[in-house]
Design a protein around this nucleic acid. Structure first.
Length: 592
DNA sequence: GTAGGGTTAG
């Protein structure tokens, strides 16, 4: 292990060298060049200057380099108090700067003021305003602004339509997005360009339509719009997220070798992330080496992905070493990096280390966020240190943050684990009183907690009572209930649930099958267990044989049944491979 | 001279 660690670290060190310095030099020199560019003397600008002279304005960067919201408002007030208003471009630059700081609501306020004062807005300002609406999940308001465009004879262009399309996708309104996209093409309202295609492709990928996304990629190519690295990276990332690494890699090769499009750090980050999730470390190293050869330097995302993956594997020491290298290479870790490491300590139950790092964050200049707190909460709860968790939970509010469903979920899990079902109930009620809507994960925690506290009846009645599609159509919740029912001797109910989920059209996953097979074994129904295990192999579960190898395991009695099967010779190679993947690591160690 | 798209954490 030490040797492997060293070689990987050397790889990181080598590949991060040499590339950092140039990126630090670039901005200031290019800014100089920009500031001294003389103003254009075109007819358009002469016309502008008659009504909106720039009044000897400072260089443009003043509007673009706004550092805070206060700064932006002061500048805006100063602008509107002048005798003759500055160019609309300067307003747009200011609006854009506010948007970049993610103060969408304030940006809209400024936009409204502009309209009231009578600054003649352009496509640019309109697009910024529409983007603000969309980013706040108020895409309908964005469409209302589109109406204003028509009324004010501002002809919307491909930028504005792309922004609206993105807004619909952001709100998961994929059907409407698709309809809009098709309508734009059909009625020739605008010619889709590479950005619009990439937005639509992102939407398709978001809803699991990788094949259609690839279809659209082919279509755009045929219709003369050349795909670029963003388009390919979007689909590659989606394939990686679906664990379809081979398909992703095929597309990557097509992009590089057939199309001659150079990958960038984002393309590599997606691939590395996908491989990390599958624990395919050798290939991760290979990609890092490839990046080095192409002189693509790993960035904050790359390092965060590696830190996270190492932590999830329990290799926290290596994760720490990666952070040291980051610091050495002047890639500054952010709160995400540290949260990931805190989570890594918590996963291993190293709460002292987690706490120490947490306490040191402020002096490092970081402000812990709700994710930081949730990780630590989760750690305390898993270590059954409920009082510490309670204390920390109250601290979240004291620090002016709001606990979210994940924070509540951690507390619920902890309380159930120490058998405090009543207190869990109170937390659940408190959570809803805060206006937080429980998700499948919350229901999973509650079902699991109740089952483990011998309250299977409660869990089942909750399941039937809620009648909510979230709870009733989630395979994880089904699996928890099946396990709960079969472990407390209610195998009939487990069997009913299993049938029920199939009837609902849900696809049992490896965990569901494993739990059912174990249940059947426990009931002595070996024949049926064998039958179901075979069905699991035949049903193509797990798809494409790609599993992350962390979450699934077989218990001893099921394994012993399977060993009989293997001895019989009635298990084929692919099944053998699957069994291998289902055997927990600890059990392998014991056998060895 | 200004506006739209892809990667990270609980």
């Amino acid at each position: 292990m030490i040797t492997r660690l060293n070689s990987r670290l050397h790889c990181f060190i080598n590949l991060t060298g040499n590339f950092i310095t140039t990126s630090f030099l670039l901005p200031s020199s290019s800014r100089l060049g920009f500031e001294f560019t003389p103003h254009s003397t075109s007819l358009a600008s002469l016309l502008h200057s008659t009504s909106f002279s720039n009044n000897g304005d400072p260089p443009l960067s003043r509007y673009q380099k706004v550092t805070s919201l206060d700064h932006a408002f002061n500048l805006f007030d100063e602008m509107i108090q002048r005798k003759s208003l500055p160019y609309v471009i300067k307003f747009n630059q200011l609006l854009n700067a506010v948007t970049k700081m993610k103060h969408f609501s304030s940006c809209l306020d400024l936009f409204k003021q502009m309209c009231v004062i009578g600054v003649p807005f352009s496509k640019y300002s309109m697009n910024i305003a529409i983007k603000c609406c969309c980013q706040m999940s108020r895409t309908n308001d964005g469409f209302a602004l589109l109406g204003c465009c028509f009324r004010r004879a501002v002809v919307p262009n491909v930028f504005i339509f792309s922004t609206l399309l993105d807004g619909l996708i952001h709100e998961d309104r994929i059907i409407e997005a698709e309809r809009l996209f098709k309508k734009l093409i059909k009625h020739k309202l605008c010619e889709p360009d590479v950005v619009m295609y990439s937005t639509m492709i992102k939407g398709l990928c978001k809803f699991g339509n990788n094949d259609i996304a690839i279809g659209l990629l082919r279509l755009m190519d045929e219709s003369g719009c050349k795909p670029n690295v963003v388009i390919y990276s979007t689909i590659i990332d989606s394939l990686c997220k679906d664990k379809l690494i081979e398909d992703a890699s095929k597309l990557f090769n097509e992009m590089v070798f057939a199309k001659g499009i150079q990958p960038d750090v984002i393309t590599y980050n997606s691939l590395i992330h996908g491989l990390c999730n599958l624990c395919r470390w050798d290939e991760v190293s290979k990609l890092l080496k490839e990046m080095e050869d192409l002189r693509i330097s790993p960035d904050l995302h790359t390092f965060s992905i590696l830190v996270d993956a190492l932590c999830k594997e329990g290799r926290v020491d290596e994760a720490e070493a990666v952070i040291d290298i980051m610091v050495e290479r002047r890639v500054v870790p952010d709160i995400v990096t540290y949260n990931t490491l805190i989570d890594g300590y918590c996963l291993r139950g190293e709460m002292t280390k987690a706490r120490t790092l947490f306490d040191s964050l402020t002096s490092k200049g970081f402000v812990p966020n709700v994710v930081t707190y949730s990780s630590l909460l989760n750690g305390y709860c898993k270590s059954l240190k409920i009082e510490e968790a309670m204390h920390l939970f109250h601290e979240i509010t004291r620090k002016g943050l709001k606990p979210d469903i994940v924070s509540y979920g951690a507390m619920l899990q902890g309380l159930f684990r120490v058998g405090r079902c009543g207190a869990a109930r109170k937390f659940f009620d408190g959570m809803r009183a805060q206006g937080l809507i429980p998700d499948e994960c919350t229901y999973g925690i509650i079902s699991d907690g109740l089952c483990n506290n011998h309250q299977v009846e409660e869990a089942l009645s909750l399941f039937h009572l809620v009648g909510d599609s979230k709870l009733n159509s989630n395979i994880v919740v089904y699996t928890i209930l099946i396990e709960g029912a079969s472990k407390c001797g209610k195998f009939d109910i487990a069997r009913d649930l299993f049938q029920d989920l199939t009837l609902k059209g849900l696809q049992p996953d490896v965990q569901t099958y494993t739990v059912m097979v174990s249940g059947l074994c426990g009931e002595g129904l070996l024949k049926e267990a064998k039958h179901l295990f075979r069905k699991m192999g035949e049903s193509g579960c797990p798809p494409d044989g790609e599993m992350d190898g962390r979450r699934y395991s077989l218990d001893a009695s099921t394994l012993s049944m399977l060993i009989d099967e293997i001895a019989d010779g009635s298990v084929d190679r692919s099944m053998l491979k699957l069994i291998g993947k289902l055997v927990p690591k600890e059990m392998m160690d014991t056998l060895a």
